[in-house]
Design a binder for these strands. Structure first.
Lengths: 130, 130
DNA sequence: CGGTTAAATAACCGATAGGTTAAATATTAT
DNA sequence: ATAATATTTAACCTATCGGTTATTTAACCG
């Protein structure tokens, strides 16, 4: 299927392409420079760029013999919107875990031997680098 | 690559699988019921479910001969965290668009013929159903 | 002009994705 | 034990993916 959302998800389902986007987040650059960190041929990188371009995640300009690539984040916004629809589900999971932990602590006070589990304040772990 | 993020993105890159998740968001259900809306064979759906399971997006129980599927949203939280890193880029784009529109309006007042472009208040479009 | 550099395209290859039909498995019901 | 129902597995097929090397295109430079 080649609907926009599927194209975008598919484009993001490859660590090389995500690394390319991360690099582009620091600024426009050439194909050669983009390819440098990877131990793969230029045509391979070129194909990755084509996938990203088809998904609308990058655009390419022209400056002499260089084709500078630029990040286009609009499709990422669609992804964000899609995933937000499910936010309640993971928050709800945390709620359930909280309830469960409270219940455990309440019903079996002999587990006080473990670390003081006084409302660990389950919060967004974040820090998902890459 | 089979890192968690890639597995999750790949699992989401198929409209059938996203539809299955949407269905599961309304509650646990059987494979047969999940398969019903699609004009494809049961084994095909079974494969989709295996992909979702491998990505951690669903879990399966056992109740008699049924294998009820349940949505697990934790991987979606990882997706949300990843994409949030790029939020500034699409917001920045809107800013640039705003500046551009202001500039246009300011420099060429003869375009007043178009609809009153008085700060359209660019806001999150949302409403991305599927 | 000829040479160099940047990038894309062509042709190929093995692995995987997404579907099929047919057969096997697991559980319930008779 | 047998049959019925729900689901998975096996085997197969075609298309796409992600990579390669070799070639071609595009733009600069001297």
């Amino acid at each position: 299927m080649d609907d926009p959302l599927s194209l975008t998800f598919a484009a993001l389902a490859d660590p090389t392409r995500r690394a390319i986007l991360a690099r582009l987040a620091t600024g426009e650059t050439s194909v050669t420079e983009l390819a440098e960190p990877f131990q793969m041929s230029m045509p391979a990188v070129s194909k990755h760029l084509k996938v990203l371009e088809r998904a609308g995640l990058i655009t390419r300009g022209r400056s002499a013999q260089w084709r500078p690539c630029r990040l286009e984040a609009a499709p990422l916004q669609s992804i964000a919107a899609w995933v937000e629809e499910y936010r309640q589900f993971w928050e709800q999971s945390f709620d359930r875990l909280d309830s469960y932990l409270e219940q455990i602590q309440q019903l079996s006070p002999e587990t006080g031997s473990s670390k003081t589990v006084k409302q660990p304040n389950q919060e967004n772990p974040n820090a998902n680098k890459q």
